[in-house]
Design a protein around this nucleic acid. Structure first.
Length: 503
RNA sequence: GACCUCUUGGUCAAGUGGUUAAGACAUCGCCCUUUCACGGCGGUAACACGGGUUCGAAUCCCGUAGAGGUCGCCA
């Protein structure tokens, strides 16, 4: 049997990282099994649909490198791949269930249902639809239908017995039917709900493995009842735990931190969500994360290859991915580890690959025409964690920042403003005398002078770097910075720093 | 509240009855060094709790606690 998996997002926004991981695992499993990976758009809720979201999904899938064999924009033998375009397919199946007693027409108004729900809540019990309309006679139903009264079709869940399903990860999951509600299958607008569409589509598209979030774990028994009612073979289910994030408890609307009873911020774990500002896949790419690093990191968040190796390309993942390595517990998204992964991937880039990416970011801070960008990139590459940090790492090259003279104080280097002034005054003529302004020449001239003066390296080099950069940390030491700035600018900065120390 | 699920260091995680309970990130310390970083070396740190079963339990069973999910004409 050929494995067929599907990623079925609804077009309600961007591809969040949890969604990306689901898509990735679904893709990897299909590839590993030599099967097909299908993209299906679940847009049965026209009210929530966001214009352009479908294109964003295509774009993100493309950027992530998750190519699908069938989908709305690539075609396939099981189309259409957009649920709203399959609208006419669902009602006949629903009617079939009505015929066999597994579903029924319901004419209850939204107002009635809301009132019932409210009442249930007041009484502190779980709301459940009480099958009011199931007892309508065939004549009554015909009459109402003929009169054009809006209706929905509900699943008729048995009042007793158990319902369950088998999950690859969780094993057999079973619940009492009495705890299940008669879900709406076909909405008043004629479109199916997710509860119905996923079953019909997965079956008619020949999906063999359904991978989705654990939020569907509690409704899966109902779906299995549907498969049974149709006499269909249910797919293999693989429910994936969510990706979480640690954060302070915040107000849903204002995003402000809600303190606990003692007035302290309360640390909680919640699902990754755009609403609270968590980054989407695209956000990460825009912020200067490498696609491969993100994929690698996400793959390992909730799945383990059970070895010590942790760097994998998408191709390699396609070969070694397996369902057994997926963990059942939710995992926390750790920005620091992602940053580390990214730094490692950046280091592996060839200089030719690194430079164009870096240059784009450098331009935000400096005029790249005026500097030896190649040299800057050499210095920057081993220090790049995320590309978006680059501008602030080089901004001092464009303009000398204001700084406090206590920057000259460094315990280990045995320097302070007085030592610095002395060193700077002494080194000034040495620098002025250098004709060939290269790092090597700078190095030789200064080091010779230091030896001559009988100083420690740090007592000269630390102040010099501070005097011309104005920053405690720079990508490179005094010689590299001086070289990058050029002789004129270096001496100009040196002079002004000396004057400031004298004042 | 009801139902479902989960629980190894701060985080990601290996581990499937007998291990000194891996590894990675983070953190701390040391070395390298003209800063930071890179690199190297080392340290701190975990089986949620309580009962069983067993010669022996992180691993099996039962409770408890905590966490997550669901309870929509949303997916």
């Amino acid at each position: 049997m050929t494995v067929r998996t599907r990623f079925a997002p609804s077009p309600t926004g961007y591809l969040h990282l949890g969604g990306l991981r689901t898509a990735l695992y679904t893709y990897l499993y299909a590839r590993k099994s030599g099967g097909n990976f299908i993209l299906r758009i679940e847009d049965t809720d026209q009210e929530r649909e966001i214009p352009g979201a479908v294109d964003k999904i295509y774009e993100s899938m493309k950027q992530a490198g998750l190519s699908y064999d069938e989908g709305p924009d690539v075609g396939g033998d099981y189309g259409p791949y957009i649920q709203s375009q399959r609208k006419s397919m669902y009602l006949p199946y629903a009617k079939q269930l009505v015929e066999t007693g597994h579903a029924y027409y319901c004419f209850c108004t939204k107002e009635k249902l809301d009132a019932d729900r409210e009442k249930a809540e007041k009484e502190g019990r779980a709301y459940k639809y009480e099958k009011d309309c199931m007892h309508l006679s065939k004549e009554e139903i015909e009459e109402k239908l003929a009169a054009g009264i809006p209706y929905v079709i509900r699943q008729n869940i048995p009042t007793e017995g158990k319902a369950g399903f088998d999950d690859v990860l969780y094993g057999r999951v079973e619940v009492d039917c009495s705890t299940l509600d008669d879900n709406v299958l076909i909405k008043a607008d004629g479109l199916p709900t997710y509860n119905f569409a996923n079953v019909i589509d997965d079956h008619t598209m020949g999906i063999t493995h359904v991978m989705r979030g654990t939020e569907y774990l509690s409704s899966a028994p109902k779906y299995n009842l549907l498969y049974e009612a149709f006499g269909w073979q249910p797919p293999m289910y693989v429910h994936l735990p969510p990706v979480m994030r640690e954060d302070y408890r915040r107000d849903k609307m204002t995003k402000e931190i809600i303190p606990d009873e003692n007035g302290n911020p309360e640390l909680i774990v919640r699902k990754l969500s755009k609403r609270y500002g968590d980054p989407s896949f695209e956000d990460l790419l825009d912020a200067g994360y490498l696609k491969d690093a993100v994929i690698n990191f996400i793959a390992l968040l909730g799945w383990s290859p059970r070895g010590e190796r942790e760097f994998f390309s998408l191709k390699e993942l396609e070969e070694i991915f397996d369902l057994e390595g997926i963990s059942k517990a939710p995992s926390l998204f750790d920005m620091k580890k992602l940053a580390w992964f990214n730094a490692e991937y950046v280091k592996k880039l060839s200089p030719e690959e690194y430079m164009p990416i870096a240059e784009k970011w450098l331009r935000k801070a400096i005029d790249t025409e005026k500097f030896d960008v190649k040299r800057i990139c050499e210095l920057l590459q081993p220090r790049t964690e995320v590309f978006s940090q680059l501008p602030e790492m080089v901004d001092f090259l464009a303009e000398m920042p204001e700084f406090e003279s206590d920057l000259y104080t460094h315990k280990k280097m045995k320097t302070n403003p007085e030592v610095a002034l002395d060193a700077l005054v002494k080194i000034k003529p040495v620098l002025e005398a250098i004709e060939d302004w290269s790092e090597a020449a700078l190095h030789d001239a200064v080091m010779n002078a230091v030896a001559e003066f009988g100083m420690k390296n740090g007592q000269m080099l630390w102040p010099l770097r501070i005097a011309i950069s104005g920053k405690a940390n720079t990508p490179g030491g005094a010689f590299e910075i001086a070289y990058l700035l050029g002789k004129d600018e270096t001496l100009k900065r040196l002079n002004s720093s000396i004057e400031r120390l004298k004042a």
